[in-house]
Amino acid sequence: MELLLLILIGVFYATGIFMMLRRSMVKLLIGIILLGNGANLLIFLLGGITRGKPPIIPEAEKALTGAYADPVPQALILTAIVISFGLQSFAIVLLKRVHVLIQSDDLNDLNTPDTSI
């Protein structure tokens, strides 16, 4: 299964970057979401994946024993998922605001005055 996940992560990263390089702002947003998913999966995979052994201590015991899924990447990813929701909503609103201001969806129209140095 690791192989499929490896490919999947590569695809997430590739499509994320590809969408970020498009001129459309909405596509940029989609790219960011894909990239975020790829990163989450990457952390998840690298922590080691285990089937059917969640990191929850059974009723009768006081500590986890035997093989169990690594809780550390899970805690990290949980944080990352919620944060990326904040990021996405902020990005959407920012995008709307820019769209209202410059009446364009083209990133090439977004050049800052830096060029006039």
Binding site: L6, F12, A14, T15, I17, F18, L21, L42
Partner: peptide
């Protein structure tokens, strides 16, 4: 141009993940 770059990047990440694994 973008497609090739993105594909390279994705492939690289997969390789790194494989190495780390």
């Amino acid at each position: 141009q973008d497609g090739i770059l993105a594909a390279l990047f994705g492939g690289l990440i997969s390789l790194i993940a494989l190495g780390a694994l």
